[in-house]
Design a protein around this nucleic acid. Sequence first.
DNA 1: GTGAAAGCGCTAACAT
DNA 2: ATGTTAGCGCTTTCAC
Lengths: 323, 323
Amino acid sequence: MATIKDVAEYSGVSVATVSRAVNNSGYVHEDTRKKIDAAIKALNYRPNETARSLYNKKSKIIGLLLPDISNPFFTLVARGVEDAALQRGYHIIIGNSDQNVEKESRYIETFKVNNCAGFISSTLQMIDASQYISNLGMAHVTLDRTDDTSFAVEADHYKGGRLQATHLVEQGCRRLLVVYGNQKFSSFKKRFEGARDALGEFDVEFDAVELASDEIDESLMTQLADYDGLICYNDLVAIQLLGLLQRYGQRVPDDIQVVGYDDILISSHTYPSLTTIHQPAYRLGRIACDQLIALLNDEKIDRYMSIDVHLIARESTRSEKHE
Amino acid sequence: MATIKDVAEYSGVSVATVSRAVNNSGYVHEDTRKKIDAAIKALNYRPNETARSLYNKKSKIIGLLLPDISNPFFTLVARGVEDAALQRGYHIIIGNSDQNVEKESRYIETFKVNNCAGFISSTLQMIDASQYISNLGMAHVTLDRTDDTSFAVEADHYKGGRLQATHLVEQGCRRLLVVYGNQKFSSFKKRFEGARDALGEFDVEFDAVELASDEIDESLMTQLADYDGLICYNDLVAIQLLGLLQRYGQRVPDDIQVVGYDDILISSHTYPSLTTIHQPAYRLGRIACDQLIALLNDEKIDRYMSIDVHLIARESTRSEKHE
DNA sequence: GTGAAAGCGCTAACAT
DNA sequence: ATGTTAGCGCTTTCAC
């Protein structure tokens, strides 16, 4: 691979001039610029980013720390981040924390020692996370799962929860089960609170149960039979429940209605298709990335951004008009 | 962030000695090692990987070029690669090519200028790809979508195709539709060939049609009604078709049986759950990564590895025993 | 066993 | 407008 020195020799100027030409910094005569461009093309020169980032103490790489990329929601977030990054000349390195504090800090360390410009995370479980990060001196934006101290971008989960509940009540449900996720995550917590508050206002009876996606099996059926509506904290769980219910002869939405959360791609393809809350995962990723880059450029950004969500009515609830 | 120089001063030795201690290269007295370890701990020193990779001309980062991480299959592959990499002290930077030649080469270039140790790809559409890569002097392993010139790891798609066809015929199908994917990808090509050959041997009638996942809508129903079995080139398509069929009153598996390919997570949760070919996506990723790292360590590896696949019988076909 | 010094490829003073 | 040079943090000869 050709280096800047090769280009300098080939075009008969110094490396400083080449550097100036490449970076459009400082003066460089039109004629010499032409010579340099020719040399670059002839030698197929590309600046070595490692050397650049060693000097600058910042690379053009953004870290992205996700709980688990196997979840289609985060996969879309990642695409959003990547596309936004690419547009501005950055690249991303992805890490899965698996909700594991040790992996988390290992990744943050990795980002640091690789001179990442900053990172986006949606999973900080570390205590004193923001303290730790600011010590590291890295730019940081929090996504979807928020704490109160960092820059944050998230969907309006409280509203999402309210929408789930409201829709089901409007479609006639009177005996609901709210299936909620791990409450230590702000996103799940707010969804639950939204649903709970709305249900309270409607004065509709409901039970609530925490359910991890790997805990779903036939043993649930006895409970499920009691309800005429299910509010699920994400689509993955909703789809599993949908399968389970049908396998045991329950008709959806006639016997029981189901609403999910996320609007992952598959949710519109199942039968019945899933009524759900659409969160703009891709857009969330883009925005978080744009925010981070703004931060890197010392632009002022909002400390907190809330992104709107809306309900998409499909076949798993009784609403007339489907999309 | 503390540098090697800080550690050297703190422990009263030279940077060279610290470097030797950190890397376990060359001699360093037990006592001085102790002092250095203490200094490292006190200063919370971590070697700057950028500086290392500038010197070594190789970073501890592996590039991973995927067609689209939104596809759950590739998502699992990525997890496999990541986990394997992590175990050996590497990290990954992921790029989505979106089947786009330009993005492809941009990413490969990115890998190069960031001193990536090597990369894994499952999507090279560039002409002369292997030529181009070997010019770059990067280690490279091809995954799932193979050409003949690189090191390659892939599942046995021909067998997978045969299994799909054989199963459907055994379950009584006599009029099949093979829904196949873009034949320029070896993986889809081999699946189709396997199914076609098996069907030929059984002397069973079939039609074949190429179908992208965004081309699926009601207009297909007139065609679909003619068949008693559907062989799909992946689960995503199979699930969409499953939904479509049911929405139009076809009973699966009574009227028509469906078999998918990939065994993504969701396939066991739909109703009816999907009979499919299990490809070990995670393991594929791990193996590809292990191969690449072996390559980097100048170990001898097989030029081509074929990984076994098997059929998982579920509710979308008539087999008695489900998993 | 340890240290001095060169150099990986680049950028940014500073001098000219 | 261009060149010289120091230095980013590290590893590795090569002396001692």
